[in-house]
Design a binder for these strands. Structure first.
Lengths: 252, 252
DNA sequence: AGAGAAACTATCATCCAATGATAGATGGTG
DNA sequence: CACCATCTATCATTGGATGATAGTTTCTCT
């Protein structure tokens, strides 16, 4: 089903085209025209016109197994990373941070009910993830919680209710109450330590990033695995991470 | 016939939205609404509606200096790199190639009258380029010429006439005749050695990539600088590069 | 602080491009 | 060959995009 806006039918054409793109983004392989139509809940004819248009512009490419995203989306991403203030400022800081801690560090920002990884530098023994930049990850597990800490109670409540019961990678269930408690702890301590929440065996220490106007702009974290680093050991890097967060925040 | 009969105004809405995105991609910094309208040749009201829609979806973000691309375009790019056959196949080959040659290697594909870098692995002493993946580069200079070699003479002629007189980085002028001669040499030799064409001091050796059906699918190259590598020295890596090209082509 | 400009938002009648049902062309399969 | 699926093409209808204008907010000078 598409993410088309419920309130009023304005901007239908563009919304549908973006739905098509994002449905191809989620796809694990090439999609047939009819697959896209079903997935994005569009008429076949509409899908065809939209997809062909996207093909003409290079945003979608057609193989003999179906349609997939095209190379032009890479160009847009390039335009983002070379321009975006947070991206360009964060990268050198992460590089230094990963160099001193020998851990993987990353920066992500909120996007709707998700967060998007916009920068990452691998540590000494890199994690197994492949090209994570741009990946969408949930907002309600792991380091995502530090992004919620800047919201009002009402916003957090509304968000928490949208995710009634989430199962973490550790197997533990996380209800709205648990989420609110974690957000509270972030507000008190200024950081969040996550253990096997999004990924089993993953361990991460996350801090919010604030810009010059004290507005939340994203989050930074160090991530490792439980088999090489203990939570206590990871916590010793908190001052270093905090310094990195400050350095980034001061320049955006 | 397939595309847009009679050059009518079909798919105007989407086309305009993509124009907006690409105008932000080209921009060197945040753009004001009126800048976008002028740049994309749109009415201000149309621009506003389109931009706001893109903001709502995260494709554009609004700062206090204007509009810029948003993080969601990174997600699309992520969807591309994890799915695209050529991207995933090429990366390990480039890694090995750069390891043995100690040079920077890359793969690019054609997109309209440009080529787009879809994979790159840095060599021993990395070039000064920042995050080049996704960058659009001209098709008529440097390694781009190997992509033209698979075209018919008519196509090459038509293309050459679209770029009447191009000035290379070395200062040399390249007319349509020069371009055609270079394309001929690619057809004969199977490779192209470029010296200070797109970038002053750059030296690159490029080969076309053919898929299982002998259709051209992109190009691969080794790139270095004239101050550390001589053309003759670079040419000694031709067998290695050719082997890499074959390995990629066999798997797509 | 206040005047002026610029950036952005909102409204609305007109009309054209998007829509979707249908039919046709193409290609692969047993 | 018949069958099924994918993709393409056509066209009347209509509803959403359009663009002119006016309004509101925000910045920038002096």
């Amino acid at each position: 089903m598409g993410a088309t806006t419920g309130g009023g039918n304005q901007g239908r054409t563009l919304d549908r085209a973006l739905d098509v793109l994002e449905c191809l983004e989620r796809a694990r392989g090439p999609l047939r025209l009819s697959d896209i139509a079903r997935e994005a809940d569009l008429h076949l004819a509409t899908t065809q016109r939209t997809v062909n248009q996207l093909v003409r512009r290079g945003y979608v490419q057609q193989g003999n197994l179906g349609y997939a995203l095209g190379p032009v989306v890479l160009s847009l991403a390039h335009g983002f990373v070379v321009n975006d203030r947070l991206s360009t400022v964060a990268t050198p800081v992460l590089t230094e941070l990963s160099s001193t801690t020998r851990l993987t560090s990353s920066v992500f920002v909120r996007s709707g009910d998700e967060r998007i990884l916009i920068a990452r530098v691998s540590g000494a023994d890199p994690l197994r993830y492949q090209f994570p930049i741009g990946r969408r990850v949930p907002l309600n597990v792991g380091g995502g919680k530090v992004l919620l800490a800047a919201w009002t109670d009402e916003e957090v409540d509304a968000f928490a209710l949208r995710f009634p019961e989430t199962f973490l990678a550790s197997g533990r269930a996380q209800g709205p109450g648990d989420l609110k408690r974690d957000v509270e702890s972030v507000r008190e301590n200024g950081y969040y330590l996550a253990e096997s929440e999004r990924e089993l065996g993953a361990l991460s220490l996350s801090l919010p990033l604030y810009d010059a106007e004290k507005e939340i702009a994203g989050a930074i974290n160090l991530v490792t695995t439980t088999d090489v680093t203990s939570p206590e050991e990871l916590m010793t890097w908190l001052p270093e991470l905090s310094r990195g967060a400050g350095a980034i925040g001061a320049r955006i």
